[in-house]
Design a protein around this nucleic acid. Sequence first.
DNA 1: TTGTTTCATGTTAGCGCTAACATGAGGCGA
DNA 2: TCGCCTCATGTTAGCGCTAACATGAAACAA
Lengths: 336, 336
Amino acid sequence: MSSEVTEPGTGPTGAAPTLSEVAKRAGVSSITVSRVVRMPDLVAPETRARVEQAMRDLGYIPNLVAGALASARTNSVGVLVPTIANSIFADTVQGLSDKLEPLGFSVILAQSRYDASREDRMLAALLSRRPEAIIMVGSPATEEGTRLLRNARIPIVETWDLPANPIDAVAGFDNYKAGVAVAKHLVAQGRKQLAFIGGDDPRGTRRWFGFRDEALASGLAEPRRLILDRKDSGSVAAHARLPDVDAVFAANDAHAIGFMFGLRKAGLLRDGPASAQPVAVIGLGDLEMGRLISPTLSTISVHGDAIGRTAATLTLERGGERRIDLGFELVLRDSG
Amino acid sequence: MSSEVTEPGTGPTGAAPTLSEVAKRAGVSSITVSRVVRMPDLVAPETRARVEQAMRDLGYIPNLVAGALASARTNSVGVLVPTIANSIFADTVQGLSDKLEPLGFSVILAQSRYDASREDRMLAALLSRRPEAIIMVGSPATEEGTRLLRNARIPIVETWDLPANPIDAVAGFDNYKAGVAVAKHLVAQGRKQLAFIGGDDPRGTRRWFGFRDEALASGLAEPRRLILDRKDSGSVAAHARLPDVDAVFAANDAHAIGFMFGLRKAGLLRDGPASAQPVAVIGLGDLEMGRLISPTLSTISVHGDAIGRTAATLTLERGGERRIDLGFELVLRDSG
DNA sequence: TTGTTTCATGTTAGCGCTAACATGAGGCGA
DNA sequence: TCGCCTCATGTTAGCGCTAACATGAAACAA
């Protein structure tokens, strides 16, 4: 049982030590070392100790690339998000990776940046790494992307929405209904001139449709829709472009807070309850920040991390319900 | 030049088609297909067209796992962050992945959750996938982690700090100096009772030391230090635990904004300039939100995405300067 | 012509590991 | 005692691809 430590990580060639180098040092065959790494119970205690010592001596780190090729299991999951620099998707990635990492799965992360052709390229790039599942925010923007995923023969989880024809599994909520719920609430509050601010990505657009349809169904004029680019800054000035509006649904809390800031400057924000607000504001996402500002932000609360954890679960289990509606909640505070 | 499309993605065995299946269909050898994928210029146009048709017919997706094993190049980079659900690190991940993805590198993401043993486990997990570089926020918390990285013989980039003995490359800023800069500013403003709120992670602690040392050097009493857990909620109530304090440095903007909310409730926040504030508040991170609230938040601005892009560059270039100080900027607005 | 170069393509071996199937030693019931 | 089972370990082949080294045809200079 040698405990002499050679220059670690350095085989004869200066390359990382391999299974068979460990095997030679421990005086066993490669497969025994492999078993010590993966199924230690199958190896006699003394042999195991000898192998473990050899691994330590050499600073052996298993090569999962080779292991994956031999076993046809990569223990990895591909994750595609529009952007990670959006706390709401970051929560989802955190949720799923907290669930997957302890099980030995790695997360391969890719961003589409809301660009359909980049999305297709990233999807192909992910698939070429042979992940055991793919979790994405939303659904593929193109036919090509859909085709790629349908042919991949691995679990696919679409999140943050409830597509009518999912590729495989779904963990999300109904964005249309969220828009409806907000409009309903604003109408009940007696608001007359509604507006929607946010991006024109698929989910934002679905919220818009729900919002508009419900407003129209309630006999209001068609709400205005202001499409903002991804940078929040536009939201601050948004009010100037929406005169006479008395209620706004912002596609996310950051836009909502920016808009409120614009209202504050215009003297149209009260520290009182919703009923006192000249202009009602409802956000989506339920950022911590919304609870901290004044007036506190009313919002559609969505559990991004739960979406991630649920998606991870759908990834691991092939049977059972493949369409999970995690719902949303209209959280009413002081802004509207 | 057959254009008949067989059931895509389905070889004779129902498994994903391989290089040699494409080769057989195109009537060439495997290596020619491999060349079409990786070095199309080396292949005659007619042959290339034939191969590309065969790839399309079969729905061929190259297997990078096999390619990586054969070529000893994985085209992947391991990224370790404390948590991705923190917009500041998410910016860094976005920056580096925007730089790496177009070059064909994949990002393997892992989270330590500020847990040293999980960090070591994730580091080992990353290394076993043989990434061509590792980018991490901060430095390894343990000797073991440091050893693993030193022996890995790949570029290692530590970010968000400027460690004295880096493993390899560094892209960050001086957290100690940031603390000093804030204390200097508050002292110049005539503040007497300083306090620091934030976590006790390595970088937060470094900011604290700079802040404290400068306060002491200026003849002030030792500032108070309030250690908050990761959930912002504590910051709202923080004021109650810091009576008589007239200036606060918060380790991040979210804490700062929460603290300001507490001040607002206590009637200690003015909408006027910094000089009018009973209690000055300085944050760190320069969230968009800080510009939107009232009073606007003074903060140490750090470019998380630039850190990510710089780290990516350090990953690709072996020569040149390996220690890049991206600095920070004290942005003075109305809160302090 | 003859040798040399260039270009397009092929052959061979092996990356580091694991699945599947041996092998052989010891235990044990009848 | 024999046959059979269990347990620990080994042998063999191959995962899908690429590096490195052929090969052979056409092009071309001397």
